[in-house]
Design a binder for these strands. Structure first.
Lengths: 167, 167
DNA sequence: GGCCCGGTGGTATAAAGTAACGTTTCCGAA
DNA sequence: TTCGGAAACGTTACTTTATACCACCGGGCC
């Protein structure tokens, strides 16, 4: 398949989108400060590109979009920025797609880790409360004498907007 | 192809391991037959290599091991065999590692899908009963109007044998 | 100043996976 | 028994994803 795909969620006033993006960048900056990490220009640019997508995006797509805007980078530079963004917790990695998306940080509201619902059509990612799944994983791990370090719960499918029968 | 010769100090009797491997291959063959798929020589070779590993293994590692034994293949051939093995359900893919492992098919005993516990040290993979995790995912998906198709639950960490404090 | 260190730039290359196309093999129908 | 289509395989080339390596820059610190 090529890169062409269904447009992301419905039309939205671009002014509103820009305000949202600016807020997201600001929150990211906050997160970096709290962790004593540097929110450099490169990291900000990469984050903004990911956040502007409102979906998951591959490292090389980020690269291409930045190049279109005049910022030509080597892959390694993007990956370094991504590493920092992951460490700061402002983006997540979708293991099943080798892609990244801006964290909406619902765990700040729920106090719990979310699971990811990734749409195969529009690439949008929802984070929904895990409702005890991670605790279950911990329990199952303990029963198997397994020491968990990183846990992935990812679901691939179709989001509401992309469901057949809808338009 | 010559038989495995006596090793001076193997940790496990190689005869026993070979018997286990032969059984695994036989079960795989069974699975292929039940699904009306062909268990060709290539597929058998690739499966045997994965099963003999007793851990997760990357496609190119399989390629290299087969090459050592005189079977030189193009990557695509291995991937095609892997696809067939996945379809037959005799191996699983570890998304978080881009690797594959032989299914021990605990769902045949429990009637339920397992989750995967992957050791970062020895690459071993345990399949343990999911204890309702997938049902929870279905429920959460429905609540989010999301239509799930593929679900990944993978845990990366240290298995009992590789835990620090043991030896 | 001289030093360390985190971040960056650039080149090259590894690792993972796929497209395209032709040939062989299997298997059932005529 | 041969024919024909589908599935499997081989070969080449290629894309996508990710990292190694080394040099350099700029700020804090002695």
């Amino acid at each position: 398949m090529t890169e062409a795909q269904a447009k992301p969620n419905g039309p939205m006033p671009s002014a509103q989108m820009e305000r949202k993006l600016a807020k997201a960048v600001e929150r990211a900056q906050q997160a970096f400060m709290e962790k004593n990490l540097r929110f450099t220009q490169l990291r900000q640019d990469v984050f903004a590109e990911i956040a502007a997508t409102h979906a998951s995006i591959g490292a090389y797509d980020i690269l291409a979009r930045l190049a279109e805007k005049g910022t030509r980078l080597a892959p390694i530079s993007v990956y370094r920025a991504i590493d920092a963004l992951l460490e700061a917790g402002v983006i997540h990695r979708l293991e099943s797609k080798n892609a990244f998306f801006a964290c909406r940080r619902i765990e700040h509201r729920t106090g719990r880790r979310p699971i990811f619902l990734a749409c195969e059509n529009c690439n949008g990612v929802q984070e929904v409360d895990s409702d005890g799944i991670f605790e279950t994983i911990d329990r199952l791990s303990a029963a198997a004498s397994f020491q968990p370090r990183v846990k992935f719960v990812e679901v691939s499918g179709l989001c509401d907007a992309c469901r057949p029968g809808k338009d």
